[in-house]
Amino acid sequence: MIPRSSSALVVALAIVLLAGCGLDASVRNHVRDNYRFEREERTREGRSLVYRSDQPPTRTAAEIAGARPPADRRNTASGVFLRYSKDFVGVVPDGRGGSRIMVDDERRGYSHFYPYVGGFWGTYSGPGESFRGGGPGGGK
């Protein structure tokens, strides 16, 4: 004997949860759906997808980060790098006023963007043999 208002709430709750499960949080899909695909690069580390945006790097990165909040980010002189649970996204100048967006898996991304994220998002034994820690929220 469930009150009618409870039944309505159960239905509303089920709809919210089902709708929530269907929401797409993938940064790969967001970039694929909103930017021009340019090419796919294959290396021994994995697969890198390259897209283009007419907007400059900081604006493009801000749009991507707004739509799919990253776990961590690095803002550098040469571009903006975003870290997700399984993907790395690098947004760099394309030389024509727009941006080149590189979407990599975690392993490939770390190698690809190493001069910029090395030590911040993982171990680092680059110049100076220093260890800068790493990990989301962990800073350096």
Binding site: V16, L17, A19, G20, L23, A25, S26, V27, A67, R68, P69, P70, A71, D72, R83, Y84, S85, K86, E106, R107, G109, Y110, S111, Y114, G118, W121, G122, T123, Y124, S125, G126, G134, G135, P136, G138
Partner: peptide
């Protein structure tokens, strides 16, 4: 890159960060 260097501390779920409000 040096073989020992790798990403650490995998981030939390992308879904949770984007749709925590759900």
């Amino acid at each position: 890159i040096p073989a020992a260097d790798r990403p650490t501390d995998s981030p939390s779920s992308d879904w949770w960060r984007a749709y925590w409000w759900v």
